[in-house]
Nucleic acid binder design. Structure first.
Length: 269
DNA sequence: TCGATCCTGTAG
DNA sequence: CTACAGGATCGA
């Protein structure tokens, strides 16, 4: 279940395994995965070479020698990896690409919420233009964060999940960043004190940087399942457990239909 | 800005 | 059995 650090690790692993490989054939096991396309739309890609694999926020783009791109979003449970033979694919495989060396690129997604679309360079430009800045790039400064949050009436936690504001923060690391910055998740974004902007910016980068390093280590083994077990979670999923800073029991609330975890003592309104 | 929705799997 | 899951979109 990927957030940005896991997507980044998946992309890196895939690039190493599949760049410069040629697609022998593509099989769509579940048509809903490729909607609005028809499975037959992928036939012209047979024989195409994978030029590169990259990501923008949580969107993955596989550039093909036909000058088309596979636009992949893993959503909640998607995963991408290469196996030595197509017969080894799990039953939750939604689409797979057999490569000319007989290895197979698997799009595995148990909940089937993820998507694989065939797009043009123009489509990619449009998709990217609707996304906020990458939280780990140098353009994302405390000053920019301040601008992004100004006038935003919604609570900070759901605001951090809005990909048009900042692109790449997900539910776990939003909770974790707010815990590190000692900000209550229900604080209206525009009301975050100026003195808290820098700590929040630092917390976002710290959490994502550490999670990325952790995801790289976990995914260095081919075929590793998605999970961020090595990353040291402070609050997420720890309802009732003591806050690592002050021992107050962590609480769970629901915001915009997503779970939020926080320390009611360290993170006050 | 909220709730429902797309799906399946797993934990309690 | 029910509740919940790390995402995103749609309509009310």
């Amino acid at each position: 279940m990927p957030e940005l650090p896991e997507v980044d690790a998946v992309v890196r692993r895939l690039r190493e395994a599949a760049a410069n490989s040629t697609i022998h054939s593509i099989k769509v096991e579940r048509p809903g995965t490729v909607l609005p396309h028809q499975p037959t739309d992928f036939k012209p890609l047979h024989g195409a070479t994978i030029l590169d694999v990259r990501r923008r926020a949580k969107h993955i783009f596989i550039h093909l020698s036909t000058n088309q791109h596979l636009h992949i979003h893993l959503r909640m449970t998607g995963n991408l990896y290469v196996l030595p033979d197509y017969r080894l694919r799990p039953h939750t495989t939604r689409l797979w690409c057999r490569l000319t060396d007989n290895r197979v690129l698997i799009f595995d997604d148990s909940r089937a919420l993820g998507k694989v679309h065939l797009v043009s360079s123009d489509d990619i430009q449009r998709i990217e233009s609707e996304l906020g800045p990458e939280p780990l790039e140098s353009a994302f400064t405390p000053a920019l964060l301040k601008t992004i949050l100004a006038n935003v009436k919604s609570p900070i936690k759901p605001a951090l999940l809005d990909q048009t504001r900042i692109a790449g923060i997900g539910n776990i690391y939003a909770s974790e960043a707010l815990w590190h910055a000692r900000i209550h998740p229900a604080t209206p974004a525009k009301d975050i004190r100026a003195s808290k902007i820098k700590p929040l910016h630092a917390a976002i980068q710290k959490v994502l940087t550490e999670a990325t390093a952790s995801a790289y280590r976990e995914y260095s083994q081919p075929g590793t399942q998605i999970a961020s077990e090595e990353f040291g979670v402070a609050a997420y999923g720890r309802t009732g457990e003591p806050c690592p800073r002050c021992n107050t029991p962590i609480e769970r609330i629901v915001q915009a239909a997503r779970s939020t975890f926080f320390c009611p003592r360290c993170q006050q309104l």
